[in-house]
Simulated scan of single mutants.
Amino acid sequence: MLVKQAANVLELLEYFARHKQPATMAEISDSLGWPRSSTFNLVATLAEKGYLYEPRQRGGYYPSSRWMSTVKEIAAADPLPASLVEAIAAIQAKTGETTAVGQAAGAYVIFVHVCESQQPIRYFAQAGTRVPIHASSAGRAILVQCSQRERDAIYRRITFKDFSTSTPMSAEAVEAELKEAGQRGYHCSNSEYIPDLAGVALPIELNQRKLSVVVAGPTSRCLSRQSEIAKLMKQELVANQLIG
């Protein structure tokens, strides 16, 4: 279910992130295809709350620093350990591929920290990116940490859509993947959700949070290197005392 008012706030933020300059209500309305009345109501409300301001009178609105201070306060209450952030940066540097930390969000995994590859052809992801929990190595590395009862509850929430020919299409198929990963020593994926994308993931549990660390990139570079990537990941996570 999508709440339109909430979605519009996020769309407005993304609009400013792209354009990086003040915009009038008319410019916002035209760019986003919103009715003028709806645009006025949203912008006026955010301005009244201090989240938008006019750098120059009648020169257009721009987000204030209140967004940043609010987000910092939220993040400070539930931070990732510095050792994990450092490990993610090191893994990214050694593998050359986008590396992220995932956490379960219903039938999805949401990336709560991302260190993106600098290669021209790469997996584009950012904090907030969501992937299906059953159709990703990042997701299955979290599922394996759950009890059977917890996993069954998650499976009931999943719509098993065939994103590709390699997408697991049932709870039984996912369970089989978890068993294979246990024997292999790491979770992996090959174009299950995004075409031509290969991933490698490991589970970690920190302060009762079930997390996963995933490295993902083009199959042309990563598919044949999955065991090598998993080894590099384990070395860094062990060195930072994040896994045994």
Rank of each mutant, 00 (worst) to 15 (best):
R157M: 14
K94A: 11
V114T: 04
E175I: 04
S164V: 13
I110W: 04
A171R: 06
Y123K: 00
Q126K: 14
Y108Q: 12
A104M: 14
A141G: 05
I91Q: 01
I91T: 02
T99Q: 05
P168F: 06
V131D: 01
E172C: 08
R151W: 00
V144A: 02
T159K: 11
A93D: 11
V112H: 00
G102Q: 05
Q119E: 14
I110D: 02
V131W: 07
G128K: 10
R122G: 00
F111G: 01
E116A: 14
H134L: 03
E97N: 01
T99N: 05
I154G: 02
C115W: 05
H134A: 09
R140I: 08
Q103N: 06
P132N: 00
G102V: 13
R151V: 09
R130A: 10
F160Y: 15
A93R: 15
E150N: 03
S166V: 15
Y123A: 07
S170W: 06
S170A: 07
S147P: 04
C146G: 02
G102T: 11
V101I: 13
E150Y: 05
V112N: 09
R149A: 15
S137D: 01
E116D: 03
T99L: 07
Q148S: 12
I142T: 05
V131L: 14
Q145P: 03
D152T: 13
V101E: 01
A100P: 08
R130D: 01
S117C: 10
A141D: 00
F111V: 02
V174R: 01
E177Y: 10
A105W: 09
Q92I: 04
G139N: 04
R149H: 10
A89V: 14
R122Y: 00
